[in-house]
């Protein structure tokens, strides 16, 4: 077994008196695709957001490549290694597609512009939107915007990619194109943690599925164990309501 890239130990998170995560232990290994499922409000997104320090932890710790997030003074370094894709894409509306993708590698990490340009074009080709490189996000459909957002995160050459319900804000006919890009990414060996409600997609790409309910991991295992032949009655009802 490979060493874990991210390991979560006893993670707790509360907002005031409301406890959202009640002790999560989870390891993400290199090259692994982990899908987190569970009912709304179960804390799925919160786990993801803790992994790149978008939320601070109430208790417990997270280790990235063995380094404690609690001991990090700045999160910029961590975030350059851990890419994130959001439910609402969050492309920068005042920048063109290419500017969106190139900004962080060029300005934050100070990579040579020509190199980043090459890489950006390759990524745009990969997500099938090369011809859109000079348009503004406003001119793109939701599915296209999300594919650009994925390309933007990938251009930082992350070691891990976090997906926070990447298709939940999309019209049904656009879900497929985004999942397709993610599937290709999974096949290329990228380490991915995905929060999603797309069960069929989860079954297809996941190496491991985590079921979360009320802030705890209720079950974890292969897609077959969790999604296709679940034993836990709670998961069964959840999946039944999904279909």
């Amino acid at each position: 077994m490979d060493k874990p890239v991210i390991s979560i130990r006893g993670l707790r998170k509360s907002y005031g008196t409301v406890s959202v995560l009640k002790g999560i232990d989870l390891e993400i290994r290199k090259g692994e695709v982990v899908v987190i499922i569970g009912p709304s409000g179960s804390g799925k997104s919160t786990i993801l957001r803790c992994m790149n320090a978008m939320e601070d932890m109430t208790d417990g710790d997270i280790f990235y490549e063995g380094q404690s997030l609690r001991e990090m003074k700045k999160y910029a370094d961590l975030r350059m290694h851990v890419g994130m894709v959001f439910q609402h894409f969050n492309l920068f509306p005042h920048m063109t597609v290419l500017e969106n993708i190139m900004y962080a590698p060029v300005k934050v990490r100070k990579e040579p512009k020509a190199e980043v340009y090459e890489r950006s074009i390759q990524l745009l080709r990969k997500v099938g939107l090369e011809e859109k490189k000079d348009v503004y996000p406003a001119m793109l459909s939701g599915g296209q915007q999300q594919r650009i957002a994925i390309a933007r995160a990938l251009c930082m050459k992350p070691d891990v990619m976090l997906f926070d319900e990447p298709t939940s804000a999309l019209d049904p006919e656009m879900v497929g194109e985004v999942l397709e890009v993610m599937k290709n990414l999974a096949q290329s060996g990228m380490t991915m943690v995905i929060v999603t409600h797309e069960m069929r997609f989860a079954a297809e790409v996941a190496d491991r599925v985590i079921f979360i309910d009320e802030g705890v991991i209720l079950a974890e295992g292969t897609p077959d164990q969790i999604l296709i032949h679940p034993e836990n009655p709670r998961i069964r009802t959840f999946l039944k309501n999904k279909l």
Binding site: M54, M84, F92, Y103, A104, R109, A149, R152, M156
Partner: peptide, 20 residues
């Protein structure tokens, strides 16, 4: 979400403010 996306790309608070 704009701030979050910028932070997730490793931008500092100052850069998030001025560039985004």
């Amino acid at each position: 979400g704009q701030r979050e996306a910028a932070q997730a790309l490793g931008m500092s608070d100052t850069r998030v403010l001025w560039a985004i």
